[in-house]
Design a binder for these strands. Sequence first.
DNA 1: TGGCCTCTAAACACCC
DNA 2: TGGGTGTTTAGAGGCC
Length: 506
Amino acid sequence: MAPIRDVDESDASMRQRLVNSLSQSFPGSALSKALACMDSDDEDLKDPLSSSCFAEMRLEKGELDDDELTSLSWLQETDLLKSLSVEEEEIKEEQKENEEFSKLNGGLLAQSHPPHVPYNPQKHINSKPPYSFSCLIFMAVEDSPQKRLPVKDIYNWILSHFPYFQNAPTGWKNSVRHNLSLNKCFKKVDKEKGQSIGKGSLWCIDPDYRPNLLQALRKTPYHPYHQLQMMSAPSTQNFTGLPGFGINRPLPLTARPAPNTISPHLFPFLSKRLGLTGSTVSGFSIDREIQDVAHTLVSMKGLSSKHSSGHSSDGSDYSSPPSPTDAAALLKQQCRKASANYLRKINSGKPIICTINPSEDHTYSASTLLMEDCPSSPTNSSIDDEYDFGPGGDDSDNSADYHSDYDYGSDGEGDEVDGDSPVHVPKITKIPARPSKSTPTRPAATPIKTRKRKQQSSSRSDDDEDEQKKIAEGADALMNLAGIFVQRQEPRQTRSCTKRRRGNEI
DNA sequence: TGGCCTCTAAACACCC
DNA sequence: TGGGTGTTTAGAGGCC
Ligand SMILES: [Mg+2]
């Protein structure tokens, strides 16, 4: 696996450079302030949960809702209107490039989006989105208030956000269903727990695979050097669809959001929920992953935070955790530790090994690898619900730009998962859910099962030690999730070491 | 070259 | 009964 970043520049100095450049370009901006907080000695400020750029942005933005996001006044405030003429020219240019690209490909309609043009689904309606169906489904589900959708609403979400599909042959729906069914990342909500919605079931994201999907989404490229861009490399590309960013104001190099980040303008609800907005620069995405790791650690201890899947859709607990408040407090504490651990690591000058192997990031074998190499590896990541969007789940209703026809009637507030499987039981004890009546357990799942059984039977007498170890390992696992691999761990297996059969599509 | 990943198509069963 | 949904199989094409 090739390293994303050769640390010829320490993360600390890179961060400092970013702070400086941000301060110059956006004096007093939330982004620069949030980043500056990372360097603060104040432990509270270092707390990634309270000082994340998203939290800051949210505070500064004053809970801006979608209407405000799309209002003219907002546009004026952000000087966006001043750049309309520039943007129009860019659009024309992009359309021209699109047409040329289309001609080069024989003039067919269903062309993949040209890799050199930043993708805007509303503009490039003749270009096939650069997202895989898994990503599209993931975005659709994540963009729903209840994080669960019937297939019809997934269709609708895709249609409304990617007009390309309005004129596409209907086969794509088959692909969506195929993906839902075959992809382990997506699972049906049990009918007895999810409300009956007539035909079909609700679909949700398997929390075990959510990080994988996030990885997949982050790494969905639409231009060849997005990885470099993600790692603070210079870029001439503007970030598509993000008002106020990159269109009329040249962002400092290190502050350019990765092109595949989720635009808060196009996907306001989703961008907040996923926390991907401009977050792939330097430590931001890592903070996100720290949260995921910490959340996973809490889960592994049998805790359940309020906004994670500790409740079934009917609101009943199926784990026996401390109160949500306790869980949240512990979560915060562990995040601090994980964060401090991470900062220690990056400041220690030790090389950071990264992976860009997509297979190891978001495929079935990735889970295998994670399980093998890092028993406490993070598999669940819903902490963003708790901290990025507030415990009130106030984003659930006012920011979704797509609303389902259904009222799925769950308890809402980020009950991100159905609970049709014991998702909040620590992963090592989790027994894979169902599969469906007609779906035999795939052979590829057997090794994981075996490992789980082995781990389940291991002694738990040294709980405290184990927990400390888990926290440390969790921070390391964070690096894995963020695509960074800490040296302390055993070398990973290569992809060739894991045999997969077809059908593990992501 | 082979394996993997993704997409597409199609057949079929089930359910409302 | 028809249509929507879910599952499964098969194959093509691209990438590594
Ligand atoms: Mg599935």
